[in-house]
């Protein structure tokens, strides 16, 4: 028993070194911009860069659209599969897992061939169309995470009874959807939303190949051209990921405190 405890602490120490040394290294590097002393110059340089603000804002907007339209697609589908088409469950689940199997670069390659400006559906023919395609590609990427978290939340409520109760009280389907189902799976919607946010903010492949001014390609550009700013940006990106994950924890803890069973 004694030796296993020592081994356990050794394993945790190795893990901590692996996880924290790069973070400390990055943070230290980001402070080195002014010669001979530590300063926040790199952060100042990043925050005063117009391109940083523009690309960060653009990615935030894309993330927002991805979350809204993704959830409008995923929640009714998960609901419907549970209520009416349980035999389709394996198929739908399989499809939602496909983006984990097919690499993002392959998916976007297909888009560029199918939806280019000379095709039957020229998404990439205009800026707005390309932005729409980018959002659609992000929905595809985050499908596994969104579907999973919504479906898990839906398992905890009795969809059928809720629907019957609402129908008996005379509710039409928009009411059922937006005033019964959505509020009851809010914890799943929110945790799916935060993980989607984290994915979209750092995403590089889709945005770079669709040529949109998102945060991911901007990071790559700065990395290729500057010395200290990339470290500051890595710390900022880590903070964004950390914030998203922290909010997921908070949501799940909150939903455990106030279970919304019918």
């Amino acid at each position: 028993m004694k030796t296993s405890k020592i081994l356990a602490w050794i394993a945790i120490a190795i893990g901590l070194i692996y996880f924290f040394v790069p973070l400390i290294g990055t943070f230290e590097f980001s402070l080195r911009m002014r010669r001979g002393e530590y300063s926040l110059d790199a952060y100042q340089s990043v925050f005063s860069d117009m391109q940083f603000r523009e690309t960060f804002g653009f990615s935030m907007l894309m993330a927002l659209f991805t979350i809204i339209f993704g959830m409008l697609l995923v929640v009714p589908t998960a609901y419907w599969v549970r209520l009416r088409l349980p035999q389709m469950r394996p198929v739908v689940e399989f499809i939602t897992l496909m983006p984990l199997v097919i690499p993002a670069i392959v998916i976007v390659f297909g888009y560029l061939r199918l939806y280019n400006s000379s095709s039957w559906l020229p998404f990439t023919g205009s800026t707005q169309g390309t932005n729409a395609l980018l959002v659609l590609s992000y929905i595809t990427l985050s499908l596994p995470y969104m579907y999973r978290s919504v479906d898990t939340a839906m398992r905890a409520i009795d969809v059928r009874t809720l629907t019957e109760a609402a129908e008996i009280l005379g509710a039409k389907w928009p009411t059922i959807m937006f005033r019964c189902i959505f509020p009851n799976v809010m914890s799943g919607v929110l945790s799916g939303a935060f993980i989607t946010f984290a994915i979209v903010m750092g995403e590089f492949t889709m945005a770079a190949l669709l040529n949109r001014p998102a945060f991911g390609p901007y990071l790559q550009l700065v990395g290729a051209n500057k010395a200290y700013e990339p470290s500051a940006l890595a710390i900022i990106a880590f903070a964004v990921t950390w914030l998203s994950m922290g909010l997921i924890q908070l949501v799940s803890r909150f939903s455990k405190l106030a279970p919304s069973r019918p």
């Binding site: 990055t26 590089f204 990071l219 470290s231 880590f238």
Partner: peptide, 10 residues
């Protein structure tokens, strides 16, 4: 979930 470009910087 911390992958992509920032991880390379780190």
């Amino acid at each position: 979930n911390f992958a992509g470009v920032p991880l390379a910087f780190a």
